[in-house]
Design a protein around this nucleic acid. Sequence first.
DNA 1: CGATAACATTCCAATTTGCTACAAAATTCA
DNA 2: TGAATTTTGTAGCAAATTGGAATGTTATCG
Lengths: 225, 225
Amino acid sequence: MKILVVEDEADLCNTLISYLETEGYRCEKAENLKSASEKIDLYDYDCVLVDIGLPDGSGLSLIKELKQTHSETGIIIISAKDSFDDKINGLDQGADDYLTKPFHFPELNSRIKSLIRRRKFEGKKEIKMGEIRIIPENREVFVNAHQVVLTKKEYDLLEFFTTNPQRILTKEAIAEHLWGDFIDSADSFDFVYSHIKNLRKKLNEYATVDYFQNIYGTGYKFEVK
Amino acid sequence: MKILVVEDEADLCNTLISYLETEGYRCEKAENLKSASEKIDLYDYDCVLVDIGLPDGSGLSLIKELKQTHSETGIIIISAKDSFDDKINGLDQGADDYLTKPFHFPELNSRIKSLIRRRKFEGKKEIKMGEIRIIPENREVFVNAHQVVLTKKEYDLLEFFTTNPQRILTKEAIAEHLWGDFIDSADSFDFVYSHIKNLRKKLNEYATVDYFQNIYGTGYKFEVK
DNA sequence: CGATAACATTCCAATTTGCTACAAAATTCA
DNA sequence: TGAATTTTGTAGCAAATTGGAATGTTATCG
């Protein structure tokens, strides 16, 4: 889960980022419009927190740009108490929510969470991949009309694969996605094997083929043949 | 879906309307009691958001008026943190829900949605879900022709589940819905277990199946198989 | 054909989550 | 007010999940 914080007050920006990181997000910062714009081009963020009053212009143009080029990214406005008009414009422009400074960090966290959830499944009632059908809202999985009850990690794993089909996912990437950035590269990722195994077993009870192809020395690929 | 926002703080009012419009509602505003009263006479709103502290009097009288003349309109109170008594009075007067300022816009949205859903539910003479039959008007519940006497919270819980069948409800969502937005996320929600247990016990005296399916680590789902 | 690394499977202890019973607090009602 | 009921909170036990160690199997390469 990747977040860009666009905020020129260095103190707020840093404390915010360290809070968000303890909550398991990966964060980057931009202190002005120019830098924010560049970062947006480079990476896909799940959510962008935008301060409206920036040294080199209003955050509004950034919101506009985001909407045009990265429509799936969530946008939360952070603004001082006096700039109500900007907030209205921001919401018109397509921002998803706003917070007035000063705000409580856990409040921000809960907004980010609910925003990301809403965005992710917007319009998507179900995902179909071969014999597998997923209903993301309820985290339910069916294989050839049989429901398969998955644990949280198993479901997260399956969702990660189905949203990245054809891509080879290394176990490091899987670990990072499912367990966050705090995982140390010195750690062993062998527990991923266990989860893959459990997921395979549950799906294969009703599926006729194995959907997780291992590429020796590299990773796994989810493939519908 | 038409909403009237009765709020004298112009900034909040405008931002709110702007947000609600991006969510697909049609909105109108009234900045005082008089104007609100006139608008109510003119149009049928699906929902009215009422600030209690208005310049020309308390929003309570408006709620009273609404209940008498437009009983099918939903009412949500918006109030400052210190006017707890007003909220209680408002709910007694017939308001359907309330929120404390400052509040979370998506939270308001979800309450409007659930209010509208509930309204639909109330219009019905009785609801049948499997072996369970509910008469919302008297808050009476029958299981296979046997009446089951529920306490208030038990009934609210059952109603929440039956108006959201197939959806997984976390205990946080349950707590928030049944106890309002003053619940702190730092609080423990374990008492929800007690209510679930009691409700299950009472229903299972006459029912042949358990209607509350627990999804480990997530929440509960009301399901008629 | 070994040697080695990568992957698969089995198993289990630690942890988290849920259930139940019961105690305490709050509320209702006679 | 005081008893009865309802609601909330707590503790102990039960069940499920999870990470990872131990062990077995397979692929790759010199």
